[in-house]
Every structure is written in structure tokens, then in C-alpha cells.
Simulated assay, not measured.
Amino acid sequence: MTQTTHHAQSPADRLLDAAVSHVPFDGWSEATLRAAMADTGIEPGLAKALFPRGALDLALAYHKRGDAEMLRKLAETDLTALRFRDRIARAVRLRLEAVEDRELVRRGMTLFSLPQNAPEGARAIWGTTDAIWTALGDSSDDVNWYTKRATLSGVYGSVVLYWLGDDSPDHQATWAFLDRRIDDVMQIEKVKADVRGSKIASALLALPLAVAGQIKAPARKPGDMPGRMG
């Protein structure tokens, strides 16, 4: 989730910009959407067309705006001197630093924790991690496409939870926690590489690896945004 922009060049942007001032009090709710309509003068019919599922679609639009802001900042950042694990950490940090009010994210997590909304919340996090991997040049087209995003989704989710409760100066405790989580993942990758290099393990894993080798990344259609599978 991200900071509010104020260009308001579309009705959807105007509603979203208006909504964020109400979210800390009313959450991502129908009350917030109604207040945003009142603030902007946008008719209910248009609001319904823009956000068919009401507050849920409004919250998802806010999350996607955050992904777009992260990608914009990432494109402006020189990553050439950074190790790959540090590039991932920088992307996650940029994603969180784009948030102007943690209460907006906290309220979003409350919404997405509801059983009927949990799949959308998981899909939103997957979209964020896919955007990160794609922006960093990931070219995998097999089972690794999925495992990379699944692993980073776990890291991202745990870091967000830590960040929401972090009161350290400039969130330094969060960035240290992020580094530790990524280090843990890198250790797992090293173990996996060592296992693959073992002759005994290679024999035992021959069939599972052959099956995994048949798994392909989803094809992207021209113009698809990161995180969208089709």
C-alpha cells in the first residue's frame, strides 16, 4: 500500500484519494466509500462501476497503486552495485516506505483477514512479489517462477507484520528484520543447491525433479502488468 497522489486525473483516482482520509476512522468499508463519494460528488452508479465489490475493490486499488509507486521508485534507483539479495531488500523497503500512514495498511490487513477476502489478500501479496521479481529481471519459466514468488510472499508478509508494530527510529528494526529474513531464505537456497549436487540426493529426487521440470510459468499476454497471470 502506498502514499496518496493528488493528480486525480480519473474518477477512480479521485475516489481513492478521498477515501484514504476516512480509512483510519472507518476502515476499508462501505462507509468510507460513501464518504469518498460525498467528498468528490461522484455518483453511486459510477462508483459502483469503478469498484463493483465496493470497499474490497477500493482497498485492492490502493494496494496496486502502492505496487506502481514501488516500481516507479525502483526504476529510478541504481542497483548495479548491489548484490541480488540486497536488490530484493531494497524493493521491499521501497514498497513499505511508500506508505504515508501505517493505519491504512493495518486496516487493509483487517479487511483481508476476513475468510471471504483472504484469497484476494493473498493474491495482492503475490502480485507485489511478482512485480518485484519481474522488475529485477527474473527470467525463470519453470517451477522456480512459483517458488521464488511463494518464498518472497512469506518474507514480505512477515516483514509487513513486523513493520506495523515497529516504533524504532526510521524503522531501523524493520530493515534489520528484513535483512535477517532474506538471509534465512538465501541459506535455504544454498542447502537446496548442495542437495542437488549430491549424487545420492540426485538419484532420490530424479522423479520429483522430472515432474517439477514439466511445470511452466504462466504465459503473459502483451501489456500484462506484473502479478497478472493468464
Rank of each mutant, 00 (worst) to 15 (best):
M1W: 03
M1G: 13
H7V: 10
S10K: 09
A12T: 05
D13L: 13
R14W: 00
D17I: 12
A18Y: 03
A19T: 08
V23A: 09
V23T: 04
P24C: 07
F25W: 01
E30W: 00
R34Q: 14
A36S: 01
M37A: 08
D39Y: 02
D39T: 10
I42H: 01
E43K: 12
E43S: 11
E43M: 03
P44I: 04
G45C: 01
L46P: 04
A49W: 00
A49R: 12
L50S: 09
P52T: 07
R53V: 08
A55Q: 06
L56H: 10
L56D: 05
L58E: 01
L60Y: 02
A61E: 13
Y62N: 13
K64S: 10
D67Y: 00
D67Q: 15
M70V: 10
L71I: 11
L71E: 13
R72I: 04
K73V: 03
L74M: 10
E76N: 12
E76W: 07
D78E: 12
D78Y: 09
L79Q: 05
L82H: 03
L82G: 04
F84T: 00
R87Y: 01
R87S: 03
A91M: 10
A91P: 04
R95A: 14
R95S: 13
E97M: 14
A98K: 08
V99D: 13
R102S: 05
R106M: 04
M109T: 04
M109F: 14
S113A: 15
S113Q: 07
P115D: 05
Q116T: 08
A118R: 15
P119K: 07
G121I: 10
G121R: 06
A122S: 12
R123W: 01
A124K: 06
T129Y: 04
D130F: 03
I132D: 00
I132L: 13
S140H: 13
S140W: 05
D142W: 02
V143S: 00
W145C: 01
T147V: 12
A150V: 13
A150K: 02
S153W: 02
G154N: 10
G154E: 08
G154Y: 05
S158K: 15
V160C: 07
L161K: 14
Y162W: 13
Y162D: 09
L164N: 04
G165W: 02
D166N: 11
D167P: 00
S168M: 03
P169H: 06
P169A: 11
H171L: 11
Q172L: 08
T174F: 02
A176C: 01
F177N: 08
R181G: 00
I182H: 05
D183Y: 03
D184I: 08
Q187F: 07
E189F: 10
K190H: 14
K190I: 02
V195Q: 12
R196G: 05
K199W: 10
K199G: 02
A201G: 12
L204T: 02
L204R: 05
L205H: 06
A206T: 12
A206N: 11
L209W: 04
A210W: 14
V211S: 00
P218Q: 05
R220Y: 01
K221H: 11
K221W: 01
D224G: 00
M225F: 01
P226S: 04
G230R: 15
